Simulated assay, not measured.
Amino acid sequence: MTETTVDAHEQLAQYVRFWNTGVEREQRACAEAAFTDGVEYRAQIGILTGAQALIDFRDQFAAHMGTVTFRLREQPQVHHGRARLRWEILTGDDADTSFATGTDVLHLDEDGRISSVSVFLDRAPEGFDPEAHD
């Protein structure tokens, strides 16, 4: 791996930590390390802009679902300022129930911070209606 790829993998580890922490101070630290100021997050549920919008989304999801774990299904692929992460969301106190799987495509700026995320569902949650979201 090149030095740039190693740095990107460190940034991607911050991204995973961001989704897995519910402690506000830790979330903000992970967000600051991982995201650019105007990070854009595009998913079927809508388009979110800025780290605060992502923090709010993560917290609302966890409040609704309870214990949530975001884990990678394989090693991320990184090249030319882009990364692909294949993930799974697990729920339950023992993180033993698979909620959904997906793939995130991230754009990294020249400093390696994430400037945008495009989310694709590989296996949507049971009962998910993609037409219910703009």
Rank of each mutant, 00 (worst) to 15 (best):
M1I: 06
M1N: 10
T2M: 06
T2Y: 12
E3P: 07
T4N: 11
T4S: 11
T4V: 10
T5L: 00
T5H: 05
D7Q: 10
A8D: 08
H9L: 14
L12S: 01
L12V: 02
Q14V: 01
Y15T: 00
V16F: 03
R17W: 00
F18K: 05
W19Y: 10
N20F: 03
N20E: 01
N20W: 03
T21S: 14
T21Q: 06
T21P: 04
T21M: 03
G22C: 01
G22R: 11
R25S: 14
E26G: 05
Q27H: 03
Q27M: 10
R28Q: 01
R28K: 09
R28L: 01
A29E: 09
A34Y: 02
T36S: 12
V39R: 02
E40G: 08
Y41H: 09
R42E: 05
Q44A: 15
Q44V: 14
G46M: 07
G46Y: 08
G46Q: 09
G46I: 07
I47H: 10
I47M: 12
L48T: 00
L48A: 14
A51T: 02
Q52L: 04
Q52M: 05
A53S: 13
A53G: 01
I55G: 00
I55H: 06
F57R: 04
F57A: 09
D59P: 04
Q60H: 15
A63D: 14
A63P: 03
H64M: 15
H64V: 05
M65Q: 13
G66R: 06
T67P: 09
T67G: 02
V68N: 04
V68R: 02
V68Q: 03
T69F: 05
T69L: 14
R71V: 15
R71G: 13
L72D: 05
L72P: 07
L72W: 10
E74I: 07
Q75Y: 12
Q75T: 15
V78F: 09
V78Y: 07
H79Y: 14
G81R: 04
G81W: 00
R82H: 14
R82I: 03
R82A: 06
A83W: 03
L85I: 14
L85V: 12
L85K: 03
L85C: 14
R86E: 14
R86I: 11
W87M: 08
W87N: 07
I89M: 15
I89E: 09
L90F: 10
T91A: 08
T91K: 07
T91Q: 07
G92Q: 09
D93Y: 07
D93R: 11
D93P: 08
D94A: 15
D96L: 08
D96M: 13
D96N: 15
S98T: 15
S98W: 10
F99A: 04
T101C: 13
T101K: 07
T101G: 03
T101N: 07
G102T: 13
D104C: 07
V105C: 09
V105N: 10
L106Q: 02
H107Q: 13
L108P: 04
D109N: 13
D109T: 02
E110T: 14
G112D: 01
G112E: 01
R113I: 03
S115W: 04
S116R: 06
S116N: 10
S116F: 00
V117A: 00
V119A: 05
D122S: 12
D122A: 08
R123M: 08
R123G: 00
E126P: 09
G127C: 08
G127V: 06
G127W: 07
G127D: 08
G127A: 11
F128G: 06
F128S: 11
D129G: 11
D129T: 08
A132D: 15
H133W: 15
